[in-house]
């Protein structure tokens, strides 16, 4: 397999795809961790019973 100029286009495509994928993955992981940490802190500040039917336990309540 000798290197031709065509390989430059191929490597650029693969590089772009993998960099984009890594960026998206990293962003998702950071966002998820931040959301989990914030929720844990807030649950310590405002404890609610797990069996409670309060709207605060419903994550979609704000949207309704």
């Amino acid at each position: 397999m000798h290197f031709t100029s065509q390989w430059g286009y191929v490597i650029a495509s693969y590089g772009l795809a993998l960099c984009g994928l890594c960026g998206l993955t990293l962003q998702s992981i950071i966002r998820l961790r931040r959301a989990q940490r914030r929720l844990a802190t807030l649950q310590q500040l405002h404890p609610v019973s797990p069996t409670s039917q309060e709207p605060a336990l419903n994550p979609l309540h704000v949207e309704e």
Binding site: A35, R38, L39, L45, H46, A56, L57, P59, H61, V62
Partner: peptide, 12 residues
């Protein structure tokens, strides 16, 4: 989870 946090902030 972000929405749940927001609900808890509103509740507090």
């Amino acid at each position: 989870l972000e929405r749940r946090s927001y609900s808890l902030i509103l509740r507090g």
